[in-house]
Computed example of a mutant assay.
Amino acid sequence: MTDTEGYHEQLQSDAQFLCSDQRMDTELVDRLVLQLNRIYPQILEDKEAHRFRNLSVPTKVRLAELLEHLYGKGEEACHEFYHALHIHAEDIYFSLPTRVRKRELADSKWSNYGAIHQERCVINDKGPMFFLSCLSFVAGIAILYYYGEGETLRCTGGFLHCSAARLSKDAKDVLISYVEVGKQK
């Protein structure tokens, strides 16, 4: 299956699987017919919906006729059938042969990509909290630099000495020296 294959071709490929799958029971076929009839009456008119919901005809025969009818209606009808199947029976939808092939194709492309780009460049593996704490520290220093002139800096001296207690030695020295310079002004 190619990436450009449409729903029309997919339905042709999946029809045999759908008709032979035991999970496609009477109730599910009825729900699909009702979905197509109520939401897309241009795809499945009332008269056609009654024909596909006729319980005197075996479910497999009704399903085969429904798929043939939708195939004859074209690409949009096939797309809406797949949409209804996805809504009402996700497990069947994802086990369709075309879906399985598409997943396998995507997995093989991804594994080739992963093998080529297996090594990942990590600049910092400390996480987001480390980044936020560094950003906060730099923002605090910037605020002190721009607004720390004169009287404001003298008031914050004690607070800054206490704040420096948890910092590394170099950061602590810079912060304390900045406070001492501010006090001298």
Rank of each mutant, 00 (worst) to 15 (best):
C19A: 11
S177G: 06
E45H: 02
C134D: 12
F130T: 12
M1D: 02
G158I: 10
G150N: 12
K183C: 11
K185C: 01
M24N: 10
K172V: 00
L36W: 00
N124G: 08
S177P: 02
I87K: 06
F131M: 13
E104S: 10
T4S: 12
G150A: 14
E151L: 09
K102F: 15
S163G: 02
R51I: 08
E68A: 09
E65R: 10
L135C: 08
W110T: 12
L167T: 01
E5V: 04
A49K: 02
I87R: 09
G182Q: 04
C121T: 10
V100R: 05
A106V: 04
S56G: 07
E151G: 02
L70F: 00
A64M: 04
S111P: 02
K172S: 03
C78T: 05
D14C: 06
Y146I: 12
L67R: 02
M129I: 13
Y93A: 01
D14I: 02
E75F: 06
E90R: 10
P41H: 00
D173E: 08
V174T: 10
I116G: 11
E5K: 12
H50I: 03
L144G: 14
Q42G: 00
I92N: 05
L34S: 09
D25N: 15
D30E: 14
I116Y: 13
C19F: 03
T98K: 07
T59L: 09
K169N: 10
A115E: 14
V181Y: 07
C134F: 04
I92V: 09
D30R: 09
A115P: 00
S95W: 03
A139H: 08
H117T: 11
L132S: 09
L67C: 05
I123P: 01
D170Y: 07
P41V: 00
K109M: 12
A115R: 11
H79G: 13
L132R: 08
Y7H: 11
D170V: 04
I143G: 15
Y40F: 09
D107L: 14
K73N: 03
T26L: 15
L11V: 04
D91Y: 01
D125I: 13
A89D: 06
D14Q: 05
L160Q: 07
R166T: 05
E151W: 08
D3S: 08
Q16D: 07
Q35M: 05
D46M: 04
D25F: 13
L63C: 07
G157P: 04
P128Q: 11
C121I: 11
F94S: 03
R166H: 07
L160T: 03
R53H: 11
R99C: 09
H69D: 04
R101I: 11
E48C: 01
I176G: 06
T2W: 07
Q10K: 14
F17S: 05
L67V: 03
I92T: 08
Y71I: 01
P41Y: 01
L144D: 14
A15R: 06
L63F: 05
R51E: 15
D3M: 09
